[in-house]
């Protein structure tokens, strides 16, 4: 027993023992253990059952936090010495109500999942798997036109922009490195032409 705690207990207004019932402590352990096992399953229905079990376990923990059971905490029934802790019970009730609402929502979601997919399994992150596959193949996360090796230099592009490059001259075009560009990168003229056109539509 921690020193501070025992000192605190001496000031406590109600002289009920802090030693909780062993059966309840055991029940908390069993509930939470079984609940954790179920919540690790894929099926939402089992997760739901696991949540219910852990929820019950934690609710009993709240009850245990109130100390040993006593008479009903109503003024006049007792001089206050053997009353049970009403606050722990109030909190337990609140959390039972919250748990109930969550169970309702979770079962609705499991049902909807069954409607849509024919099963109620919690699925992996699809997007994550796709990004991971990209990485595994050593591909870039996304195509980047700027970063591609386009085999034409900035000088060519500058010439293109200033219109002093005779694109219609077949011989010049053949001699220029633009022809060597491999798909998917189009020659600069085609690229810019297409997008400019697109921009005007």
């Amino acid at each position: 027993m921690p020193q501070g705690l025992s000192a605190f207990m001496q000031d406590a207004t109600i002289v009920s023992s802090m030693v909780p019932s062993a059966v309840l402590v055991l029940a908390v352990g069993v509930f939470v253990a079984a609940g954790v096992y179920l919540i690790l399953e894929r099926s939402l229905t089992r997760v739901l059952l696991g949540f219910v079990l852990i929820g019950n376990g934690v609710n009993i923990m709240l009850l245990l936090a109130g100390g040993q059971a006593g008479v009903a905490p109503i003024i006049g029934t007792d001089n206050g010495e053997s009353m049970s802790d009403p606050l722990a019970q109030a909190m337990m009730l609140t959390s039972i109500v919250i748990t109930l609402a969550m169970v309702a929502f979770l079962s609705a979601m499991a049902y909807r999942s069954w409607q849509l997919y024919g099963h109620d399994e919690v699925q992996d992150d699809i997007e994550d798997a796709r990004v991971a596959r990209h990485a595994h193949r050593g591909e870039a996360a996304y195509t980047d036109l700027d970063a591609m090796d386009l085999a034409w230099t900035l000088d060519d592009e500058a010439a293109e922009v200033h219109d002093d490059y005779d694109i219609d001259d077949g011989a010049a075009a053949e001699a220029s490195p633009v022809v060597a560009v491999a798909s998917p990168a189009a020659p600069p003229a085609a690229r810019f032409g297409a997008s400019r056109q697109g921009g005007q539509q």
Binding site: P2, M18, V47, L64, M91, L106, Q123
Partner: peptide
């Protein structure tokens, strides 16, 4: 949503357990 809800529910249970332990202590 099912991932989000399950994770959030677990965190709430951990919080509630912490609350009950703090009250007990």
């Amino acid at each position: 949503g099912s991932i989000y809800v399950v994770v959030a529910l677990v965190s709430s249970l951990v919080f509630l357990a912490a609350v009950s332990m703090i009250y007990a202590a």
